[in-house]
């Protein structure tokens, strides 16, 4: 291809591959689509969280626990946590894919991002559940 004469664009695509539409990464537009879905979910959830934090400013420990543990708040917090860390991992992964060269370094960083995001999500969700189920 580098000789500047010919480009064989369709030669390696099978009809089945074209129908499946998943491309070389085997996941199609899933990553891109989930980034948009989580961003839409985060719009109302983050707005609710910011308003809640404004209401919690200066609240005591007991008042904060009561807020986190209230059933509706706990469920919304869990949804916020899931959407936030999914969106965060997806976004950071694209940044790494765009700017980091070298297969090992790139893959290593992506795994680190996914592992770190998963741990942060688990820690946050565990904290909410512990508070909610203890009250």
């Amino acid at each position: 291809m580098a000789d500047g004469k010919t480009v064989h664009e369709a030669a390696l695509r099978t009809p089945l591959g074209r129908v499946r539409g998943l491309g070389s990464a085997k996941s199609g537009t899933h990553h891109w689509w989930m980034q948009r879905v989580t961003s839409l979910a985060l719009l109302p959830l983050t707005l609710w969280f910011v308003i809640s934090l404004i209401g919690l400013a200066g609240a005591s420990y007991a008042e904060t626990l009561a807020f986190i543990g209230a059933p509706v708040n706990a469920v919304l917090l869990l949804a916020l946590i899931a959407a936030t860390f999914h969106h965060m991992a997806a976004g950071l992964q694209v940044v790494v894919e765009d700017y980091v060269r070298g297969e090992l370094r790139r893959k290593g960083l992506i795994l680190l991002i996914q592992g770190g995001s998963a741990l942060m999500a688990l820690a946050s969700a565990f904290a909410v559940l512990r508070i909610a189920l203890a009250s």
Binding site: I68, L77, T84, M88, G91, M120, A123, V128, I131
Partner: peptide, 16 residues
């Protein structure tokens, strides 16, 4: 904001 979520994790874990 990805870095900022560390504050959220810290806040929730501390509360728990």
């Amino acid at each position: 904001w990805s870095a900022g979520t560390l504050l959220l994790v810290w806040w929730l874990m501390a509360a728990a």
